[in-house]
Simulated assay, not measured.
Amino acid sequence: MCGPMTDAILVMVTAPTADKAAEIARTLVEEGLAACGNVVPGLRSIYRWEGQVHDEPEVLLLLKTRAPHFEALRERVLQVHPYQCPEVLRLDVADGHAPYLRWIGDNVRPTP
């Protein structure tokens, strides 16, 4: 049996500090582009950038929103993020707890 259809998405964004991740989350929630942002500290990111391998502490920001808001959310992240090329990855939610999915929908601005 299939679960409820949903347009909920999870957007992953890394940030240099918990304060910066919280600032980004607060901006997106206040502007109605996300229902929630979880700041997850303690990442260690190893990546290649401009020909060099870097090993840096980072923070993960998990944003819950709806698919129709992704483009606006991505553009807003790019405006407020300090990185030249920030991670902004969309993960579609296949299913979930129906009341929580409704809560996401109820807490972002109306569909553009």
Rank of each mutant, 00 (worst) to 15 (best):
G51P: 15
E30D: 10
L28M: 05
D19H: 14
E56D: 14
V39C: 05
L43H: 07
K20A: 06
W49H: 09
V39K: 03
E31W: 10
P110A: 11
L101Y: 02
Q84F: 03
H81I: 06
D106F: 08
M1A: 02
P57T: 14
R102Q: 12
L89G: 11
E23N: 07
V59I: 08
R90A: 10
L101N: 03
A18M: 09
R74W: 01
P16S: 14
H81M: 07
M12V: 14
G96D: 14
E75C: 04
G51Y: 13
H69K: 15
E30Q: 12
G105L: 06
V29M: 00
Y100F: 06
P99D: 12
I46M: 11
L28I: 00
G32F: 08
N107M: 04
A22S: 11
H81E: 05
I9M: 09
V59F: 06
R74Q: 01
S45M: 01
P110W: 11
H97M: 13
D106V: 13
P16Q: 10
W103P: 06
L33F: 13
Y100G: 08
P68D: 04
A18D: 11
I104Y: 04
P86Q: 09
P112D: 09
R48I: 08
G105I: 06
H97I: 12
V29N: 00
A34F: 00
H97T: 10
V40A: 04
A25G: 05
Y100A: 07
G96E: 12
D19M: 13
L101I: 07
C2W: 13
L10K: 05
V11A: 00
R90T: 04
L91D: 04
Y47N: 05
P4V: 15
W49Y: 10
D95S: 11
D92W: 11
K64D: 11
H69V: 11
D7N: 10
V77Q: 02
A18G: 10
A35Y: 10
D106A: 15
C2Y: 14
D55A: 10
Y83H: 04
T65K: 02
C2G: 15
V13Q: 02
V88F: 00
E23S: 06
R48P: 08
V93F: 03
T14H: 08
L62R: 09
N107F: 03
T27R: 09
P110L: 07
P68K: 05
E31F: 11
V108K: 09
N107E: 05
V29T: 04
D19T: 14
G96T: 14
V93G: 06
G51M: 14
P86E: 06
L61I: 01
V13R: 03
C85E: 13
P112I: 01
L10F: 02
Y83I: 00
C36R: 01
V93Y: 01
G37L: 00
D55F: 07
V40C: 05
T17F: 09
L63K: 04
E56N: 15
L91I: 10
A22P: 09
A25K: 01
F70Y: 08
G105K: 09
V108G: 06
I24A: 03
V53C: 09
E31L: 13
P41D: 12
